[in-house]
Amino acid sequence: MEILKVENLKKYFPVQKSFIEVLFSKELEFIRAVDRINFSVEEGEILSLVGESGCGKTTVGRMLVGLEEPTDGKIIFKNKDLTSLRGEERRAMHRYLQIIFQDPYASLNPKMKIGDHLMDPLLIHGIASNNEAKKMAIEMLERVGLVPAEQFFNRLPYQLSGGQRQRVAIARAMVLKPEFVVADEPVSMIDVSLRAAILNLLLSFKEEYRLSMLFITHDLSVARLVGDRIAVMYLGKIVEIGGVDEVIHEPKHPYTAALLSAVPSFEKRDLRIDIKGDVANPRSPPPGCRYHPRCPFARRECREIEPDLVGDTHKVACHYPLEIRVD
């Protein structure tokens, strides 16, 4: 069963211009952060969304939870198009759709007790009375390993370490028993020795609640570990999507292969897939395939025609997909 489906989702940010520029140029310019993407997530499934900084992966996550209004496209969650819902109707849906942010130092209110961070969502959604909410908050603090929970309940964020704060952020998302969570780089600001604990905690919620997740990360090793499927983004487009083993061991897109060859590992594989130059400006992406200026295999077609994302379970947007296997 599909729990979430994204259709032709698009987000263009207008480029801020100076007054003089506005006077002399007619057209508004846009940064095409997300450009007509399609994907779906099954119930109880984790989809890892990977890509380099600026590829649009965070914008996708922010649109799903309503922090960014899509320029175009549909977000179908539990058979309802979120982009058509407004006000109370929309808010009601967000009980089931939560987000965990990257920076646990910025995502908690410094003047608010840890307990209130967990009680507020319960009260706002009218799920529990004050007493019940407090009980649920304490249970959830225990569940994420912040014990003794009564003590953590009364603390302020500055009294907690980064790892503990991220546990609070997870607890706040999970206290509503959501069906879908967007986790945006939840471990990239956490100490190396504490990352495993946070990842295992998230995975335990997946097991327990049959939770579905969009796991956004720049780290392919983490994407592989937590994901059932992986989607690779480049310049606002999904260039490859498929099962974790398919994408990692049989990468079809030259960009995926280039990423794989650059990931540090204790047992490095030599893929010998090169990548040229730097990422293009998302204001004026290259014509044809957006990756062609950097692709060692680019031919004429690649410079002229934009490839569609095609395939059965393992989809790729490339005119000349690779046929390789890496073990």
């Binding site: 590992s265 204790f266 490095k268």
Partner: peptide
Amino acid sequence: LLESVPDIWLQKKIKTMPGFP
């Protein structure tokens, strides 16, 4: 530390290191 780091090519579960620095 080795057991807690995910690796792209190695098949393994990651183990949680107890405690804090």
